[in-house]
Design a protein around this nucleic acid. Structure first.
Length: 301
DNA sequence: TCGCAGGTGGTCG
DNA sequence: CGACCACCTGCG
């Protein structure tokens, strides 16, 4: 494992970023594990997560904020340089500016933005995003994670790591880590091989999507994405936002429906109305607004 | 047991 | 078009 240290980060909190529903392969270390040691001299750890990103294992520890709210990110990784991880965590984007614009356009976002202040929209792999959000439909987070982990263990590559002991002495050696399958790997899987993974009826969608992605790549338009079997408006917007970096995308799920009903009185089936209202109100920052709102309602209501 | 979980495809009227 | 409704699976 190699250590990468990124200092002086503001508007960032790991748990907000990794638990707002955009990614499914990160896990938190227990409290007693991550508070046991110091990642840096004289600075305490606040939280530690570990996960797999584009074939690299990463153990990420955030320090407690200093008096100006800046934190340091300590990454123990099996690959990827500093630029890679800086990009993955979206650390070059000015979230202060995003928040200012959103708040100016919609002061009602204040509580949501304050509550989810540390959210960053990760720069994730397109194919993994496509498959992950196909699996997410009519499903819960715990099982989505389980399905994706099964896909990786069954069809991805085992990632070699010589030393998996973190700064806090927490051993990850008992665990094995696998990359998310490549389009080639997944496209060659048969329905019979996919069955034991318990993806349910999504299994066929995943097989078909992998083959089609391998041949055609991913369309960037909503209509193009929806032509994939198992991709409807909600999943298409997630793929646009998290995979294709179309930051105006505003995925509308059950939580956002509740929010739009609660804040603006939209009927819960009026997704078209919500969509156009979000476009008008949040504009090119719709995706960020959605993340703040989603995180806020999921964690407080 | 049954409804629900960050929905979607198919089938009606 | 828009309004239903079944759907794999696991958990409370």
């Amino acid at each position: 494992m190699e250590r990468i240290i990124i200092r002086d980060i503001n508007n960032f909190k790991l748990s907000h970023t990794l638990e707002c529903g955009q990614c499914f392969r990160w896990k938190q270390l227990s409290d007693e594990a991550y508070t046991r040691g110091l990642p840096l001299e004289g600075v305490a750890a606040e939280e530690t997560y570990y996960g797999v990103v584009k074939g690299n294992i990463c153990v990420a520890t955030a320090t407690t904020p200093d008096d100006k709210g800046f934190i340091t990110l300590v990454l123990d990784v099996t690959g990827g340089d500093k630029d890679f991880w800086q990009d993955y965590f979206d650390l070059d984007t000015d979230y202060g500016e995003i928040k200012r614009v959103l708040l100016t356009n919609e002061p009602k976002l204040e509580d949501a933005i304050e509550s989810g202040y540390g959210i960053r929209i990760l720069n994730q792999d397109i194919f993994e995003t496509l498959i992950s959000f196909i699996i997410s439909q009519n499903n819960n987070i715990a099982r989505i994670s389980k399905c994706i982990e099964s896909l990786a263990r069954s069809f991805g590559n085992r990632i070699e790591a010589d030393e998996l002991t973190t700064h806090c002495g927490c051993k990850l050696e008992g665990q094995e880590f696998y990359s998310f399958p490549s389009p080639q790997q997944l496209a060659s899987v048969t329905a019979e091989e996919m069955n034991p993974l318990k993806l349910g009826y999504r299994s066929a969608y995943v097989c078909a999507a992998a083959s089609r992605f391998l041949e055609d790549g991913l369309p960037e338009s909503e209509e193009g994405l929806i032509s994939y079997l198992g991709v409807g408006p909600k999943v298409a917007n997630c793929i646009k936002l998290f995979g294709l970096k179309q930051m105006d995308s505003f995925p509308i799920d059950v939580w956002v429906k509740r929010i739009m009903n609660d804040m603006y009185g939209f009927a819960e089936n009026d997704t078209k109305g919500m969509q156009s209202y979000a476009a008008e109100k949040f504009g090119r920052y719709g995706g960020y607004a959605q993340q703040y709102l989603f995180h806020y309602y999921r964690n407080t209501k």
